[in-house]
Simulated scan of single mutants.
Amino acid sequence: MDSLEKVQEQGYENQEKTSKDMSVGDWLITMLILIIPIVNLVMLFIWGFGNPDPRRNYARASLIWMAIGIGLMIIFYGAVLAFILSFNNY
Rank of each mutant, 00 (worst) to 15 (best):
Met1Leu: 06
Asp2Trp: 12
Leu4Ser: 10
Glu5Ile: 09
Val7Trp: 04
Glu9Lys: 11
Glu9Asn: 11
Glu9Phe: 06
Gln10Thr: 14
Gly11Thr: 08
Tyr12Asp: 11
Glu13Lys: 14
Glu13Gln: 14
Gln15Ala: 10
Gln15Pro: 00
Glu16Arg: 13
Lys17Arg: 13
Lys17Tyr: 07
Thr18Arg: 01
Asp21Gln: 05
Asp21Ile: 10
Val24Asp: 11
Gly25Thr: 01
Asp26Phe: 05
Trp27Lys: 07
Trp27Gln: 02
Ile29Leu: 12
Ile29Gly: 00
Thr30Ala: 11
Met31Ser: 09
Leu34Ile: 07
Leu34His: 01
Ile35His: 05
Ile36Ser: 01
Pro37Glu: 06
Ile38Gln: 09
Ile38Met: 07
Val39Thr: 09
Val39Glu: 03
Asn40Ile: 01
Leu41Lys: 03
Val42Gln: 11
Val42Tyr: 15
Met43His: 06
Leu44Asn: 06
Leu44Tyr: 01
Ile46His: 11
Ile46Ala: 03
Trp47Met: 03
Gly48Gln: 04
Phe49Arg: 00
Pro52Cys: 07
Asp53Ser: 09
Asp53Cys: 08
Asp53Lys: 05
Arg55Cys: 01
Arg55Gly: 00
Arg56His: 01
Arg56Phe: 02
Asn57Phe: 03
Tyr58Asp: 02
Tyr58Phe: 10
Ala61Gly: 06
Leu63Lys: 03
Ile64Pro: 01
Met66Asp: 04
Ile68Thr: 07
Ile68His: 09
Ile68Cys: 06
Ile70Asp: 02
Ile70Arg: 05
Ile70Thr: 04
Ile70Pro: 04
Ile74Asp: 09
Ile74Tyr: 15
Phe76Thr: 12
Phe76Cys: 09
Gly78Arg: 01
Gly78Tyr: 02
Gly78Asp: 08
Ala82Pro: 04
Phe83Arg: 10
Ile84Gln: 15
Ile84Thr: 15
Ile84Asp: 11
Leu85Asp: 14
Leu85Thr: 14
Leu85Asn: 14
Leu85Gln: 14
Ser86Arg: 13
Phe87Asp: 12
Phe87Ile: 09
Asn88His: 15
Asn89Lys: 15
Asn89Thr: 13
Tyr90Pro: 02
Tyr90Ser: 12
